[in-house]
């Protein structure tokens, strides 16, 4: 019936308020400090880290996680979670790869197919949100189901094989350079810009924060909670769909397992950036830093000769460390 009783009641407030304010600001800077420290350590241990070529490689590697993080950040700001990432990527990738010139069928719709892939992602996000809101089940399970269904759909369409993409335009998205940086980096930057505008200047973005801060109060203020939630999951799906398209561009093919590993990376990145799993705290700019931390770390490990199979393990430790350092544990007495 009632929320868990918090023991620490409203204490004499003014001192507590300002101390808390200082804490909030300091904590916000920690991920940036970690990033800088990481870069410094790696460039000392592996000098080629700071070479222009490597920085370009680094940004390319960060692009797809960055686009995904644009979607995931909004979901986590709500206090929810979205495990459908890999499934939605798969659907987006398969749709794009089958509609452009490819090695399997005769289609050649060119870049018109990209918006279709994005739209497919949005549709899956919409389904995800509708299930979560209207069947009133936790987003964890709704998105787990939708994610597996997405991989199933993608596998079903392809029968388990990969589709090589022959359309040179699609490839050029990833590799055509503009001002020295590959196209995919610019697309990711644009995605961040759009996500930031949505976060700062639209009602959807502001209400996402409000819901993460406290849903009861939002209900009293007349905010259409269900619509906001569905909207956020749709928005997230849109970004995952775009990421699926970028995967095709980067890997030159479409297949159902193309998104494998990205879920883990993106959750790590968002959390490491300082967006709280409890909702309401953090944002897109945090996630930019989070993605860079994760990418720099894996890039640095490669440069220092650590085999890639260690990656997931390091990310796992990173998640736990980041949350352990960030959570305001007084508020969450009952952890499920």
């Amino acid at each position: 019936m009632s929320a868990p009783t918090t023991v620490a009641g409203p204490a004499p407030a003014s001192a507590r308020g300002s101390r808390r304010a200082a804490g909030v600001q300091l904590r916000g800077l920690v991920p940036l400090g970690v990033l800088i420290l990481l870069c410094a350590v790696i460039s000392v241990m592996a000098p080629e880290f700071s070479s222009l070529g490597n920085l370009r490689r680094l940004l390319s590697a960060a692009a797809i996680p960055m686009v995904l993080a644009c979607g995931m950040t909004f979901v986590i700001l709500l206090g929810s979670i979205d495990l459908s990432v890999e499934g939605v990527i798969a659907v987006g990738a398969v749709i794009l790869s089958l509609l452009v010139a490819n090695g399997v069928n005769q289609n050649d719709f060119g870049l018109v197919a990209v918006p279709l892939a994005i739209l497919a992602g949005a549709a899956l996000g919409l389904v995800n949100g509708l299930i979560h809101v209207h069947l009133r089940i936790p987003s964890l399970i709704a998105s787990l189901g939708v994610g597996f269904a997405g991989i199933g759909v993608a596998t079903l369409i392809l029968g388990g094989s990969a589709v090589p993409v022959t359309d040179p335009l699609v490839q050029s998205i990833a590799f055509q350079r503009l001002l020295g940086l590959p196209g995919i980096v610019w697309i990711a930057a644009a995605a961040v810009g759009i996500a930031w505008l949505i976060q700062e200047y639209t009602r959807l973005g502001r209400w996402t924060y409000a819901l993460g801060g406290g849903e009861d109060i939002c209900r009293l203020s007349g905010i259409p909670i269900g619509r906001v939630r569905v909207g956020v999951f749709t928005l997230a799906g849109t970004f995952y769909g775009l990421a699926g398209a970028l995967c095709v561009a980067q890997f030159g093919e479409g297949q159902a397992l193309i998104g494998q590993g990205f879920l883990f990376t993106v959750i790590t990145a968002v959390v490491v950036g300082g967006t709280s799993l409890a909702g309401g705290v953090g944002g897109i700019l945090n996630s930019v830093i989070g993605v860079l931390v994760v990418t720099v770390l894996s890039n640095g490990m490669v440069l220092m000769g650590v085999p890639p199979e260690y990656q997931q393990g390091v990310q796992g430790l990173l998640i736990i460390a980041a949350i352990a350092l960030s959570l305001d544990r007084k508020r969450t007495r009952f952890v499920k």
């Binding site: 407030a13 003014s14 507590r16 909030v24």
Partner: peptide, 11 residues
């Protein structure tokens, strides 16, 4: 200002 940085009576 972020609301949580206010004192109780300010809020």
């Amino acid at each position: 200002r972020r609301t949580e940085t206010l004192s109780f009576s300010e809020r």
